[in-house]
Simulated assay, not measured.
Amino acid sequence: MPAFPIRSARRAVAVPPGRMRHDISEDRILLHTIQTAEAFGALLTNGVLKPDPVLAEPPLHADGYDWMYRQMDARLPTSGDGAIWLWARIRRQDLVELCRLAPGQVLLTCRVPRQRVLLSHFGDWHAVLNRHPLIIEHSDESDEANGAQLDLIFDDVDGRVRAAGVSLDAGYQHSPAKVRTELEDSWEFMLDPTNYGRYETWQATVHALRSDDVVQAVRIEG
């Protein structure tokens, strides 16, 4: 029998009421993840849930996921193929909405040691997925000025890729080495919570989720 409670709940009430006290500076971070019934079954059977890299790497964004996996290998004491994705800081209403879209799946509330977790800024993660440089907007500049700066930087990157004879639709791995290095260096900004304010949405990745990481499981009813 698992050491954590398992209950069933309708989608609208799968997330317990009250404030979710996410503190990403804690030694054991409060995390949430929605997993399939099959994945939950594997966790109960094996005492550990490991990712399926095939399912975690959509071909359209394989380059972005590969970068994240390399960051995990470099920064975490653990190892493995792929990642389990969790929410480290998310608005309660957003988590409720995700549960509404996941009938038949399982909401896991976890506490995972900080050293096994790689945090990443959810919004800025999309720069990686889109293979764009991560540019930090200056609060003392207008939206128009920031937008113009972004256009110049994006156009410069696209121009250098084209000059190398590479189609913009080609995989990221075909871009010039200098461009790839500049992009990856810019993306590392999103891995440091001290670069952001208090109310940002944070995701987390781990190489594996253990049964003793789980605080509670909720089977989401249809």
Rank of each mutant, 00 (worst) to 15 (best):
R111T: 01
L108N: 02
L101E: 02
H132F: 01
L44M: 15
G197K: 06
R100A: 12
Y65V: 03
M68A: 11
A204R: 04
P17D: 07
R91E: 13
E144D: 14
L119Q: 07
R210Q: 07
R19H: 07
H121T: 08
S79D: 03
E38N: 04
R92G: 00
M72F: 05
S25K: 15
D158H: 06
I24W: 12
T194Q: 11
G64I: 02
V112Y: 11
F4Q: 11
Q203C: 07
Q35S: 02
L55Y: 07
S8A: 12
C99P: 05
Q173Y: 08
G165V: 03
R219C: 10
Q93M: 10
R116D: 15
A163S: 10
T36M: 02
L209F: 03
N130P: 03
E137Q: 08
V48G: 02
S186N: 10
T33W: 05
H138D: 13
L55Q: 14
A127N: 14
I90A: 03
E188K: 01
N46F: 06
H121M: 02
L191H: 01
R21L: 12
A102H: 13
Q105A: 13
S142F: 09
I90H: 08
R91S: 09
T109P: 00
A127T: 15
D212M: 00
D156G: 11
R114C: 02
T36L: 11
E57S: 14
F122K: 15
M20G: 15
A37R: 15
G41H: 01
V96D: 07
K178E: 09
L98E: 04
P133H: 06
G171Y: 01
L101M: 14
L134R: 04
P193N: 02
F4I: 10
G165Y: 06
L60N: 14
P59V: 03
G18A: 09
R11W: 08
R210M: 09
L152E: 14
N146Y: 00
H138A: 11
G18W: 06
L43I: 01
V218E: 05
R111A: 15
R180M: 07
M1H: 13
P51M: 07
W202E: 00
Y199G: 15
L129C: 11
V214N: 07
T45R: 15
V13D: 09
G41T: 05
T205L: 14
S175W: 15
I90D: 04
